[in-house]
Amino acid sequence: QEELVKAFKALLKEEKFSSQGEIVAALQEQGFDNINQSKVSRMLTKFGAVRTRNAKMEMVYCLPAELGV
């Protein structure tokens, strides 16, 4: 569980995922086979993730800066 949270936060820091499906796929690539869209959705809510525009003006998920991840 701890490893999943770390990987999840690291992915969001990249600010390149525009959908929950993309986050699920990226986590599965890292070996988290039991991850699915509903789990990702709950984690996004739990950590207060928001959708914002990145440098390329794409809408992407990211974590609020005050979490200091």
Rank of each mutant, 00 (worst) to 15 (best):
Q1D: 13
E2Q: 12
E2V: 08
E2L: 12
E2H: 10
E3D: 11
L4C: 15
L4F: 06
V5H: 14
K6C: 15
A7Y: 06
A7V: 09
A7M: 06
F8E: 00
F8N: 00
A10R: 08
L11V: 05
L11C: 04
L11K: 01
L12C: 04
L12D: 00
L12K: 00
K13V: 09
K13G: 11
E14S: 13
E14L: 13
E14Q: 13
E15P: 09
F17S: 05
F17D: 01
S18Q: 15
S18G: 13
S19C: 04
S19N: 09
Q20W: 06
Q20M: 12
Q20S: 10
E22N: 06
E22D: 10
V24L: 10
A25L: 13
A25G: 07
L27R: 00
Q28G: 05
E29Q: 12
Q30G: 07
Q30F: 07
F32D: 00
D33F: 13
D33W: 12
D33V: 13
D33E: 12
N34I: 06
N34C: 09
I35S: 02
I35R: 00
N36I: 05
N36Q: 06
Q37P: 09
Q37C: 05
Q37M: 12
Q37H: 10
S38H: 12
K39F: 12
K39W: 11
V40G: 00
V40R: 00
V40L: 05
S41K: 15
S41H: 11
R42N: 13
M43E: 01
M43R: 00
L44N: 00
T45N: 11
K46Q: 14
K46H: 14
K46I: 10
F47K: 01
F47E: 05
G48D: 05
A49R: 02
A49N: 03
A49Q: 02
V50C: 09
R51L: 15
R51V: 13
T52H: 11
T52G: 09
R53G: 04
N54T: 04
A55S: 13
K56I: 05
M57K: 11
E58V: 10
V60H: 02
V60A: 04
V60Q: 02
V60D: 01
V60F: 03
C62V: 10
L63C: 11
L63K: 02
L63H: 02
L63R: 01
P64N: 05
A65S: 13
E66S: 07
E66R: 06
E66P: 08
E66M: 06
L67F: 04
G68S: 09
G68L: 07
V69N: 15
V69Q: 15
V69P: 15
V69L: 07
V69C: 07
